[in-house]
Design a protein around this nucleic acid. Structure first.
Lengths: 220, 220
DNA sequence: TAGATTGTTAATCGATTAACAATC
DNA sequence: TAGATTGTTAATCGATTAACAATC
């Protein structure tokens, strides 16, 4: 298997996995890059290149063995061995994520939730009882947790993240609308609603512009 | 102002906006690209190029006028005139989004929530009462809504999205773990937790690999 | 066999980074 | 003035797309 899989490729892997699972449910045993590309509206060459990173070889005229491919893609993401994560900040969004069923598909399991606020500590969300932040360090150490999900307000995000790093957390998935400054060896993924919405806004705008141009042209 | 702002640039705009707002609160009136770059850990040349898309000119040795820059960046994203959005799927995540305070900063306001399930319709989340999906079309038409937030289960996402398009929605922000196939003139933004987590997983993995290599090298 | 599909090598495209003159 | 910072033009880098031989 080639190494250093490009991030854009990584981002397409979940889509491949989902689609291939569907094919499998429909009783198929192999799939071609062309089919995947058609269904996902991607360039077939791109799909072939992406799949090459799985290390699986396809057969001309047939495609790829679905079972092999599925295993390889899931392994490439590290989703085969499930990992435990803790969540910090049990507000609206935090609670929603704790309750989200889909994570098990990615080998992610939220095993504890923490919050600073007294009125939230002790509350039950899903199967978890919210713990006070004071118990964070001990919990992380005792349970060998390496992934944290950060759903605290923006103004607490940096402090919280530093606390997590101090406790030995290696990967932080932050939903706070804030850019974090952390040591390089910490994996950080920001899921920022502002950024996401910015892209949607821009697309909407440019579509409107395009339509306007078209409307103008129609006048001619 | 140059046009067709690249997506990577668009994605950095919210970070600039947030940071510049902070500077402003601290009483500053101008800011240099270099400062922004330092605080965000970005390349200063990149920041300068990005800011050029705002149409604002800076002054050598001084930087950019904070007020001008803020307005221009917000306008570039279309966040100046606030837009009303509806939300489809008032489950865990949907409810959390309805309750999310931050959207007003982006000129986004969720004005109605819809759901198919009888047991959810009529429930109150935040200031909204969940409406039945049957009222969707009328509401969209009557209120001239162009943006929809989609928080339904994956298996309903495609059908739902098509319904939205039929009602005249022009932009869909989908949180469903599903790739949607929609007409080209519809702006779609997928905020897919699977994709986000895939990237985090990959970063974590490569960090571990790096550490392992380093550990191996330390043996020499 | 014929033709679809693979994998690889080369060309293109777009974003990032570098170099540097202009200027406050 | 000196030096920091701007804006622009050129070089680099990485991902996407194209071209094409290999193969089932």
């Amino acid at each position: 298997m080639k190494h250093r899989i490009p991030i854009p490729t990584i981002k397409r892997f979940p889509s491949y996995i989902r689609l291939i699972k569907q094919y499998k449910e429909n009783g198929l045993t192999s799939v071609s890059a062309t089919t995947l590309a058609n269904d996902l509206r991607l360039n077939p060459i791109q799909v072939r290149k992406d799949l090459a990173f799985s290390g699986i070889e396809g057969k001309p005229k047939v495609g790829f063995c679905i079972d092999e491919l599925l295993v390889a893609l899931i392994e490439a993401l590290g989703w085969n061995n499930s990992s435990d994560a803790i969540l910090i900040g049990a507000g609206n969004l935090g609670s929603a994520l704790v309750g989200y069923k889909g994570f098990e598909n990615y080998g992610l399991s939220i095993v504890a939730a923490f919050d600073k606020k007294e009125e939230i500590v002790g509350k039950t969300i899903g199967k978890l009882t919210v713990k006070p932040l004071t118990e964070l360090e001990e919990y992380v150490l005792l349970n060998g947790i390496s992934i944290a999900i950060l759903t605290v307000p923006a103004n607490q995000a940096q402090t919280c993240a530093q606390l997590l790093v101090k406790c030995g957390i290696q990967a932080i998935w932050s939903f706070a609308p804030k850019d974090l400054t952390l040591p390089e060896n910490i994996a950080v993924q920001r899921t920022d609603l502002a950024t996401q919405f910015a892209v949607l806004s821009a697309k909407l705008r440019s579509n409107i512009l395009k339509d306007d141009v078209k409307a103008d042209m129609d006048l001619w």
